[in-house]
Amino acid sequence: MSFLRRHPILISIVLFFFATQFISFRLEGKRERDTFSGFILTLTYYPQKLIFVLTGAIVGVWHNYIELIGIREENEGLRNEIRKLRQEKFQLWEAELQNERLKKLLGLKEDTLYDVVSANVIAGSPSILRSQVVIIDKGSKDGISEGMPVATYEGIVGRILLTGGKSSEVILITDEISAVDAYIHRTRARGIVKGTGDGCVMEYIEKKADVSVGDKVISSGRDGFFPEEVVIGTVVETEASGGFIRARVSPDMDLNSLEEVVVILKSPEKTVLNE
């Protein structure tokens, strides 16, 4: 320990050298199923799920009760009636929204050729280095494995990066290492949709191809990960990029407020690489 105290900078340099070699090695190698990583995911699942359930309950209480305290002060005579009506209205509204979401999820289940598993988003990445990662409350015990595509009724969300027993990590299509082979729905012009950190771009579209703002972008199914004909987003801007066209694509759903997703139980046709 005294050696550490005398040579902190030397120790840091040695560790840094070791880290760069280690990282290079990891980047070259294929991602293997890591038991210890899976254990960490499972270990963190329970408190994350607990927080998810508790915050959901607290928000429910807030909406159903605390907001109504203000109304009581304004008009004591009408308060009971208003509270009942508002509670009923809110519950109906919540039920309607949930019903709509579930119907659409069910619709997606019926439309797809693959089995799907519904899941809730319970946490996000703790690091900004890779912030486009979320954690869902379903894992290998539900038949989920690395590389499986994840979607909502509005389109592709991402794919499974790592699985634990009861939870999994999903890398979103907006992450910089994400790529999806895609078509422009209207003209069948092909390209690759890549994440940019806060959105997506479709690259390598042939210069003569017909691409306009408002065109829907769908998956081609040729990348081995995603099933074909699933919506990715809408073209919001196009520009020439070398010998190709580059189109900015906005996902049709808000990936920052994901709540419910479905994992399509389709194993990748190629080995999944982490990086």
Binding site: A19, F22, I23, R26, L27, D34, S37, I40, L41, T44, A123, S125, P126, S127, L129, R130, S131, V133, I135, L161, L162, E169, I171, N274, E275
Partner: peptide, 9 residues
């Protein structure tokens, strides 16, 4: 693990 980064970073 939780951020999906290269293990070791």
């Amino acid at each position: 693990v939780l951020s999906g980064n290269v293990i070791g970073l």
